[in-house]
Amino acid sequence: MQANARNLIMNETTTRTLTIQILRHNPQDPESEPRFESYQLDEAPGMTLFIALNQIRDEQAPSLQFDFVCRAGICGSCGMLINGRPGLACRTLTSKLGPEITLAPLPVFKLIGDLSVDTGAWARQMGERLETWVHQESEPDIDRLEERMDPDRAEEIYELDRCIECGCCIAACGTARMRKDFVGAAGINKMARFRLDPRDERSDEDFYELVGSDDGVFGCMTLLGCNDVCPKELPLQTQLAFMRRKMASVK
């Protein structure tokens, strides 16, 4: 039992100096040009990119922009390119990276400034376009016993409901980079989630209207960049293939 103290991150003893290159640009400022700036700091035990970036802002670059809310890998705010790969910065330990780290904003999304991008607008627009809510004619009767649901089905829905709209899958997707209206893995996964939900009365024809095109399931090239980077490890590969099959059989 005490053995676990051994591999505790906070007991690490080595100290390294980290060099963090950050792609900086403030589109609000007409003078600003995208450029890499380099910052050095001493690594501390258990340091995450959340801690490192705050320290840089505090001590070296007061205007540096980035987004964190939960700092626990839950809210999806902090997606960025970490050494070129989309990931959540808050739950990335610096000890898992080399001493030279490159950070850049997620591509595809509108840049707000430095590492901050507008994933919020993207998510809202996806929700409006795909109508990502349960479509039911009647209102729930809140005074009566709730509708029953198969326990396994409830868990399956939750599995797909876990998307945190971080945008990593979009940033990793070749199609999304080329086609600005492509709904991406996150969008297709959401459709799979509502399709699975017995409370949602939409038919496959309805879903086809939403994702049965080249901006939907038929635009996906199945290279699976999305599947590899999803921080919630959603079964994107399976869902993409499944939805494509279902949609292909509609017409």
């Binding site: 809510w133 349960v134 039911q136 209102e139 729930p140 009767d141 809140i142 005074d143 009566r144 709730e146 509708e147 029953r148 649901m149 198969d150 326990p151 409830a154 868990e155 829905i157 939750y158 409901d161 509502f194 939900d197 409370r199 949602d200």
Partner: peptide
């Protein structure tokens, strides 16, 4: 509170169920 849980169930929250 029970009404709130039931309303959310109607709005899609996949509450875990009794087996």
């Amino acid at each position: 509170a029970p009404k709130a849980v039931r309303e959310l169930a109607g709005w899609g929250v996949p509450w875990n169920r009794v087996r």
